[in-house]
Design a protein around this nucleic acid. Structure first.
Lengths: 152, 152
DNA sequence: AACGATTAAATCGTGTGAGATTTATATGCC
DNA sequence: GGCATATAAATCTCACACGATTTAATCGTT
């Protein structure tokens, strides 16, 4: 039990530090194209599917409007996206790539290979890592949303 | 290659989201004892070794004084730690647990088991996860510190 | 001992993140 | 149709994170 405690302490540290190092690794690469890591993730989401609402992007990134609104305004200021109210539902704001936003994808395309190279993992290991991260996310989110499935 | 790009995009998302979910899971647990996640990590570091300099804690958490100084001042305001200049080297500030800071450990001790339970992983899987996170951190940090080991 | 270089914290400005509240629009029920 | 309810963004406040700079103390060399 002192053992389990110890392990988790290391685990929470290692997850925290891995996230950090991911962020740090991307930073200089993204600096070249003028984006922060969260801005890059929002752009990746839009490159894979254009014309999303703030809420949809938020779902993809696990972020709410309190974080996304200013972030997207910065992307708008960079002329990478446009923000317009949906005429069919004025509550929603639709985010669309501009030509410049689509152009930027080309400059960002070399980045993934840099990460794969730095990690130095095989395809299978990358796959395992990806699956593990998704599982961790799923399990923790389930526990967070409903702390006690058997009612309280 | 469109393949590799796709995989990494998912990977950077999944790592980002796993970090998020970890943070979200800890939040309500830590709220009970009045700490944020980074504050908790600093306290864990001090519980495992008391009387560290800002720099030493920073090394453990991959943080610099620009982040740590205000964080540690908040812990000081909570009366959990003391901050005093080292008489032998006045440049350094030594961080020491107060009695209250040591006491808090008891209230934090149940948290690790919650995480292990939520993850629902075997000891071996937890171990693998931990090792993988450490490896990711190591590889990415190496690449970040010296972008090209074979000179440029 | 003196002065340039190094080191440790602290400070400053910008950009996330998150809880709580607010504003504006849409929906449901009578 | 009219009003309570629900939903989507935006706003506000606080707490990280980080690059860059500043301040203070120590070290190294002469």
């Amino acid at each position: 039990m002192a053992n389990a405690l110890q392990l988790d302490q290391f685990l929470c540290f290692s997850v925290y530090l891995a996230g950090h190092s991911f962020n740090q690794f991307y930073r200089p690469l993204l600096e070249e194209i003028g984006l922060t890591y969260p801005q890059y993730l929002a752009m990746v989401s839009l490159w894979s599917r254009d014309d999303q609402t703030v809420r949809e992007i938020g779902k993809a990134l696990s972020l709410e409007s309190n974080t996304l609104t200013p972030l997207l305004k910065r992307l708008e200021a960079l002329a990478l996206v446009s923000r317009t109210r949906d005429p069919k539902d004025e509550r929603q704001v639709r985010i669309r790539l501009t030509d410049k936003g689509r152009e930027l994808r080309k400059q960002a395309e070399h980045i993934p290979a840099c990460v794969v190279e730095a990690l130095g993992l095989s395809q299978k290991e990358l796959d395992d890592l990806h699956r593990t991260m998704l599982l961790v996310q799923k399990r923790l989110q389930e526990s967070t949303e409903k702390p006690s499935p058997s009612g309280v």
